[in-house]
């Protein structure tokens, strides 16, 4: 069996990077690609994936078939797929089969991460969006007291700070969509 290594790294709850190195060919692809499929099991909605191909020297048509299939599965759930650091021969073959029309290639893994919907510290950002929904429920009480002590207000402010911790799971789904739209617009790579 030809040597190939696939390591899947969890960057955050909605972003994984599959580091592929070696040669993906007929002798190993069916077995080795399962590592990526496994990583997608029970994936949350909006999970995105970067295929880091820096160490990949060869891929055959079946590997490309799998990549296309993975692309379909990920995007179906609202995620985004990108390639990074692919060598010229790998890009060439991806291009001839038309895959670069679906997935953008980035020169570095950092550039790819930055382009992903959830990569720009999204875990923090969705929380404030969720806060207003919960805080109004708490606020009516302090509203009754304003004349006496507006100083009481800091207390309710402190409360929402704890609630957002519960929220992050559903929250990233909402902001994922708008940011996908903007990054799709940035698909100037294809020419």
């Amino acid at each position: 069996m030809t040597e190939v290594t696939i390591l899947v790294e969890n960057i955050n709850p909605t972003l994984k990077v599959a580091h592929i190195s070696g040669q993906l060919d007929e002798s190993n692809v069916d077995e080795k690609i399962q590592g990526i499929y496994k990583a997608l099991e029970n994936a949350p909605k909006g999970l995105s994936m970067i295929f880091d191909m820096q160490g990949l020297d060869y891929m055959n048509s079946k590997s490309i078939g799998y990549l296309t299939d993975l692309y379909g599965k990920i995007t179906e759930l609202g995620g985004k797929v990108a390639i990074c650091s692919a060598k010229p021969n790998i890009l060439d073959i991806l291009q001839v089969v038309g895959l670069t029309q679906l997935m953008q290639n980035y020169e570095s893994i950092d550039a790819a991460k930055a382009a992903m919907p959830t990569a720009t510290t999204p875990v923090v950002e969705p929380a404030p969006v969720a806060q207003p929904a919960t805080t109004p429920v708490v606020e009516p009480a302090p509203v009754a007291q304003p004349a006496t002590t507006p100083v009481v207000e800091p207390a309710p402010v402190a409360q929402p700070a704890t609630t957002p911790v519960v929220e992050p799971a559903p929250a990233p789904v909402t902001p994922a969509d708008p940011s996908q739209v903007t990054s799709d617009g940035a698909y100037k790579f294809e020419s």
Binding site: N60, S61, K62, I64, G65, Y66, T68, D69, I93, V96, V97, G98
Partner: peptide, 17 residues
């Protein structure tokens, strides 16, 4: 339309190149 895992090699790679 190429839909499955297989079948791209003959046309998309061998044929194109």
């Amino acid at each position: 339309q190429f839909t499955g895992i297989r079948g791209r090699g003959l046309v998309k790679i061998i044929g194109e190149w």
